[in-house]
Simulated assay, not measured.
Amino acid sequence: MAKVFFTSDHHFGHAAIIDYESRPFGDVEQMNESMIASWNETVGKEDQVFHLGDFSFLNREGTSRILHRLNGYKTLILGNHDRSRSRSWWLDAGFQEVSGNGIIYKEFFLLTHEPLYMNRHMPYVNIHGHIHGQKYEGINHFNVCVEHWDYKPVSFEDIMNILASRQEADRDSSAEG
């Protein structure tokens, strides 16, 4: 049975991100190849992947070469670094679907590039990227930036398990207070 995965902020071809985010790679080629291998070790050919933005800094040909090597049916939600290119540019490069806005997934999850304001009483979870290694999580936020997940997409099943643990911990701390 096909699985669903979420990820963001690969920044393929962006050498400066290695220093900006203290990524454990010697150069951009090692980073790109390592992230492609990690993706394909995690995602099967029939799986679905929602990429929540900032996919590639390469030209269309370079981006297309990477996309065609990656397993899964790939949907892109445009990130701040993706928006200078049109939706059709990304489709031509190899994404199966592209959204300029967030997507509502399973009527409960808001998929966006940048985290949205969510107070603790809102009944939704914002799955997002953009903030790389920073922490901005709780019962209403889930950061899928590659820096948090060993440069691999994270499965919906794992997200659900982690959120359940967070909700239980939140209930426990509320009961103590």
Rank of each mutant, 00 (worst) to 15 (best):
E168P: 02
S88R: 10
S56H: 10
A169W: 01
F156W: 08
V4N: 03
F57T: 00
G100V: 05
I77P: 07
N101I: 15
Q167K: 14
I159E: 05
I66H: 01
F12M: 03
A164Y: 04
R83S: 05
G100K: 11
R166W: 09
N32S: 03
R23M: 08
D82H: 00
F156Y: 15
Q134E: 08
F6W: 01
R120Y: 10
E46F: 06
V144C: 09
K45A: 15
F109L: 11
F6P: 01
F50W: 06
T7W: 14
I162F: 01
E46T: 12
E46K: 13
R83N: 04
D27A: 05
L58F: 03
Q167C: 15
R83A: 08
H132N: 04
S84W: 09
S86T: 10
L110R: 14
I36D: 13
G72M: 07
G26W: 12
D92I: 13
C145Q: 02
S174C: 14
L91I: 15
L70T: 14
P24Y: 08
I127T: 03
G177W: 15
L52R: 00
Y105M: 07
M122V: 05
G53L: 12
S86K: 08
Y136C: 07
E97M: 11
L116G: 09
S165H: 01
E107A: 10
I66S: 01
H10N: 04
G94A: 02
N59Y: 04
R85F: 06
E21V: 12
S22H: 07
L111E: 01
H141D: 14
E29G: 09
Q96F: 01
T7Y: 12
D170R: 07
T7C: 08
P115V: 07
G79L: 09
H121Q: 15
G13P: 03
R60S: 06
M118F: 04
E29R: 14
G79D: 02
T112G: 09
E61A: 11
N140L: 03
L111H: 03
D54L: 05
R85C: 00
D150L: 10
E107V: 09
S88N: 12
V28K: 12
K135H: 15
H113G: 00
L52E: 01
I131H: 01
Q48Y: 15
F55V: 03
F5M: 05
D19F: 00
H10C: 07
E176Q: 06
H132F: 09
G129H: 00
S64L: 06
S174A: 15
I18W: 07
I104Y: 14
Y151G: 11
I18Y: 11
T42W: 05
R171T: 13
G44H: 12
I104S: 06
L116K: 14
N161L: 11
I36L: 04
M160A: 15
I17F: 06
S88D: 14
M31L: 12
L111T: 00
R120F: 14
F50K: 05
S99R: 10
P153I: 03
N80G: 00
Y105H: 11
S38G: 14
E33D: 10
V125D: 13
Y124N: 07
F95E: 00
E33F: 05
V144S: 11
G133E: 10
F5Q: 02
W90N: 05
I36G: 06
S34R: 10
D54V: 00
F5Y: 08
Q167R: 15
R83L: 12
D54M: 02
